[in-house]
Design a protein around this nucleic acid. Structure first.
Lengths: 340, 340
DNA sequence: CTGTTAGCGCCTTCAT
DNA sequence: ATGAAGGCGCTAACAG
């Protein structure tokens, strides 16, 4: 039988209350007594039963997700997953609230963070907008002991305790490594389509991509980036122009969303069969892989990100450590043969 | 406040005991009473507090892992991870025992499974050896209600309730898809080095690989498979011969272990710079990627497999459902730019 | 068939 | 500074 508080109390010759005080380093116990009790605890190898403790405490976690009100399929899925988690975690006494906020609006995000702080929730998860107002609000939350974790898009130097998302520089580098090899012996130019270089993820992916192209595949020229604002219609136009205006085109890296447009453009220009790498395994991306128009898709597992964010916030609330390996969000690489 | 058993007892006008009986569909309740109580339960939206239930029950899970006594780094790591989990899960009242058994020995495995059954553990995780004696033992365990999950290597049609591992056919297909593209415009032959075609994973990888090579890259001839028994020294010899005897060699797929030997052979034959794909991200594989001798490494996350196996066994013991997405073991693809 | 009672391991008043 | 008693939500003997 595993030792319990009773065993400690008995062996130490004190009451349960005192044991409890020592266990939770609460005040009101003589230094000498404390040391004695601590010795007994260590000696009999006591491990606290967290479940029982939470039961007695009527612990109830309250976490909030502040997610952009975007309509691209990634964000739609992300919100759905959070809503799902809300239901699934109820039995575990952890409440998850999803709050939609205007996209790319630092003020709105900062305001909502402040509101969460006012409500004194147990944790805040945000898709960060890279802005000092947000940084400020996050720092403030952290200062009053409310953990902020970023998800999908990070916000360094803000006091956030964790980032649940992929390393976007590495993603860009990986895209270049694959595309470079896929282009085989060709020469020429590679086109890059981004959503907007205003957002950090896209900037980072581009940086990583350019870096590896320059270093490992210098025979290709990286064309100036087109910004498609994650909008399929815009992307279609950009891609079409890219193909028609660059006979030298040897490959395309689409590092943002709106791939439906890209796929349309590729299908319309059947002649130009070139390696294409995109991001996020949406239905469109699957279609692209299966039809052979996309050669690889880099992906982040949104479900993992949501679970991870919650685990991290809970661990923080419990004062428990996290397992780095478990929380690392991988850069998933899909080709048509390893589709789930 | 969330409704509790007390609320439902009160509202239904019965005692706690009766509520409990209904909740756990135990006998000894008049059908009419049962229905009434059930109605109330549904009506007030009761959700049972599993933690409290387990506390009252003094529930204590006991799971066993039967792992081959192999010395290759994957198995070494796997065993280390299980040992780690053993410690980490103690506070959650789940006991994890690791038992090493002779590798590739169906009888030994079957005997140990039977022993677990005799000890009536709550779950058994095995690296399956594809043999009917094992199948039999697993089926027997399942028959008496003890869940068996396979890990790393599966055992279909055996009554095992879950497989925590990658789809090896898909892995082979993926290897072919990547290698085919990496070989670019070349022509010639591709070499395949396996551990042993006696084990299912290797057979499946080979099948997937051959299939996609034949279909998508028919201009390459797949050379007869060499079996290196996952032994570095043997593999080195095989690889050296492969390279020297096949001037047409355009690529290599190493689908087993023993990659240290492969790497040595490649380094010794600097002249032959050709695309190479291997399995499992060991230190050797990392070195290979970083030095440019390996172009991609397919990987399975052993830590995820261990966690998943435990979650599945626990869910089974609790009669809870599992989340397929969370338990799916991915085929991780690493190039030198997305190394963790 | 149904109800009463006493815990599970821990925390939290309230006295002392 | 310390202890006694009661309760968290659920289950498990026993009685009726």
């Amino acid at each position: 039988m595993r030792p319990t508080v009773h065993d400690i109390a008995e062996k130490a010759g004190v009451s349960l209350a005192t044991v409890d005080r020592v266990l939770n380093n609460r005040a009101g116990v003589r230094e000498k007594t404390r040391q004695h009790v601590e010795a007994v605890i260590a000696q009999i190898g006591y491990i606290r039963d967290v479940a029982a403790a939470n039961l007695a405490k009527k612990r109830h976690y309250q976490f909030e997700f502040l997610i952009p009100d975007n309509d691209n399929s990634f964000m739609v899925q992300l919100r759905a997953l959070i809503a799902e988690a809300t239901g699934a975690l109820m039995p575990e006494r952890i409440g998850v609230t999803l709050r939609r906020i205007p996209a790319f609006d630092p003020d709105a995000l900062a305001v909502e963070i402040d509101a969460c702080v006012a409500r004194s929730v147990d944790g805040i998860a945000i898709v960060a907008v890279d802005d000092d107002r947000v940084r400020q609000a996050a720092g403030n939350a952290d200062a009053v002991g409310i953990p902020v974790v970023t998800i999908v898009s990070d916000l360094p130097e803000s006091g956030r305790i964790h980032y649940a998302g992929i390393d976007n520089v590495a993603a860009g580098r990986t895209a270049a490594a694959l595309l470079g090899r896929f282009m085989g012996g060709r020469e020429g130019a590679v086109g890059v389509i981004a959503g907007s270089l205003m957002v950090r993820d896209h900037r980072e992916r581009l940086a990583g991509f350019s870096q590896v192209m320059a270093k490992d595949f210098p025979r290709f020229e990286v064309l100036p980036v087109s910004e498609g604002r994650d909008n399929p219609a815009l992307v279609e136009g950009l891609a079409t122009r890219l193909i028609s205006e660059n006979p030298q085109l040897a490959g395309i890296y689409s590092l943002g969303a709106g791939n439906r447009g890209l796929l349309l453009a590729l299908k319309a220009n059947a002649a130009a069969s070139l390696p294409v790498i995109a991001h996020e395994l949406t239905q469109t991306a699957r279609d692209g892989l299966q039809s052979g128009h996309f050669d690889a898709v880099l992906h982040q597992d949104a479900e993992h990100e949501v679970r991870s964010a919650i685990r991290v916030m809970k661990a923080h609330a419990d004062g428990m450590p996290i397992s780095d390996a478990q929380e690392r969000i991988r850069i998933d690489i899909f080709v048509k043969d390893n589709l789930p």
